[in-house]
Design a binder for these strands. Structure first.
Lengths: 151, 151
DNA sequence: TACAGATGGTTACAGGTGTAACTGTCCATT
DNA sequence: AATGGACAGTTACACCTGTAACCATCTGTA
């Protein structure tokens, strides 16, 4: 009978994720007018180079419609260009433009600085957190994409 | 220059939160046709008894519009009743009906079982995770509510 | 008493999201 | 060669969410 939402794992994890993500998102939202899906797609392309939309989705755990929209947004910012596949005309290869690569470089600098800041703020807590996350990644299967982070 | 989204803390934390939450949400979504905000409000009311909408928001970290909608949904399910405050007519006191309390009882049983399951699946990882979450809760200020968990 | 600002709660609106349906293309089997 | 199913990617639709504006009420100050 003694139950408190504040101690319930799913709730705490969501809260923590929100705090950590928003703090970082605040650093690029205004500066680059970039949304979280766009940042994820940019990060995937920046670190792996040429990819297809499907690959981006697999790498960054985004639904294909979300990838489709993020890709279009990046394209409109001229940070990404599409090119067609020889042989399979369904596939589009996506790649960052020089401008996109520059933004990516600035973003990973922000990301590294943020990781430093987390390490400083969380101390040993960070090591524990990473061990816990590893356990989840290893033992909880990834459910198929469902409606929203909410609901 | 070596950056991988899969190892970036905000991303990993979001992924983990999503896995853990969806797995639990799957247990009540269909059964009670309840959304996550409704579950949070139900949990707050069930464990603290009579509360105002503002208090629910503070306890469960939900935006006031989200609380407003969740409360209406619970009311339509006849799981919650409103009553007016003597003295301050802006305030509404919210309380679970007997039916609401029954559902709450069933939900906390599910929640406890889920915690057991997590403990079994995550092993020592759970203790580490909790230590990490505690560090975040203690050291990262809660940002004011911003747009969606996404973006 | 009067009034300006704060507060509890709701709602119109704009924007984001997944589902399902769709288009175009490929491939295995016939 | 033809055809049925799989697959890459886009889009119409319904739904959810926060912002901002709003209403009603309260409170402090003059």
């Amino acid at each position: 009978m003694d139950f408190r939402l504040e101690t319930f794992l799913p709730y705490r994890l969501n809260q923590a994720a929100e705090r950590v993500s928003q703090r970082f998102a605040a650093q690029y939202r205004g500066r680059y007018r970039m949304t979280r899906p766009e940042w994820r797609a940019l990060a995937a392309l920046g670190s792996y180079g040429r990819m297809t939309a499907t690959e981006i989705g697999a790498n960054s755990s985004m639904h294909k419609t979300k990838v489709s929209r993020a890709v279009r947004a990046l394209e409109e910012k001229r940070w990404l260009k599409r090119s067609e596949d020889e042989g399979d005309r369904r596939v589009e290869h996506l790649e960052l433009t020089p401008a996109g690569k520059r933004i990516y470089g600035e973003m990973i600098a922000l990301a590294k600085a943020y990781e430093q800041e987390m390490a400083r703020l969380l101390g040993d807590g960070l090591r524990h957190l990473e061990a816990g996350l590893a356990a989840i990644e290893a033992n909880l299967p990834m459910q198929p994409q469902r409606r929203g982070p909410e609901d």
